[in-house]
Simulated assay, not measured.
Amino acid sequence: MKGADAENRALAALLEQGHTLLARNYRIPGGEIDLVTRLGGVFVFSEVRQRRSARYGSALESVTLRKLELMQRAALTYLFREQGRDDLPCLLQVVSIEGEAASGVLSITPIE
């Protein structure tokens, strides 16, 4: 349930910014995207990470290059399967929460 709490908090923050939810936990073989939203004409693919303490690094630091590659593949698959093309404007980002899901510091970091 802890992961769901972090995802719910991240989704609430995105909705407050004007995003529209398109999918949660979109899965393909070998990859998953926690939240798929749309903001204007841009599809936004979000990985949600939470760390209660920085003992083993920050939530953002826990996202590996391999995870980013899998996110990119899942995002392209989503666009192709659900929108009929894979050349639409999109953004990959990490929504990180440092501390408890309900009260920790939430940050949104675009992946370039």
Rank of each mutant, 00 (worst) to 15 (best):
50 Q>T: 01
55 R>C: 11
61 E>A: 06
87 D>T: 04
80 F>L: 15
46 S>G: 05
42 V>K: 02
68 L>R: 11
67 K>D: 13
90 C>K: 10
78 Y>S: 04
38 R>N: 04
73 R>D: 14
54 A>D: 11
71 M>V: 14
58 S>N: 05
83 Q>F: 03
81 R>N: 07
44 V>I: 09
52 R>V: 14
82 E>S: 04
83 Q>D: 02
93 Q>E: 13
87 D>A: 01
90 C>D: 10
90 C>H: 15
53 S>E: 13
57 G>N: 09
49 R>I: 03
93 Q>W: 06
67 K>V: 08
99 G>V: 07
51 R>L: 10
53 S>M: 12
51 R>K: 12
48 V>Y: 01
99 G>T: 07
51 R>V: 12
100 E>G: 08
96 S>C: 04
48 V>W: 01
39 L>H: 00
45 F>G: 08
71 M>G: 09
85 R>Y: 05
73 R>A: 11
98 E>C: 10
51 R>A: 09
74 A>P: 14
65 L>E: 14
71 M>T: 14
80 F>K: 12
49 R>T: 05
87 D>E: 05
85 R>V: 13
99 G>E: 03
82 E>W: 05
88 L>F: 08
48 V>S: 01
98 E>P: 09
63 V>D: 00
46 S>Q: 01
51 R>C: 11
82 E>T: 06
56 Y>H: 09
83 Q>R: 07
39 L>E: 00
70 L>A: 09
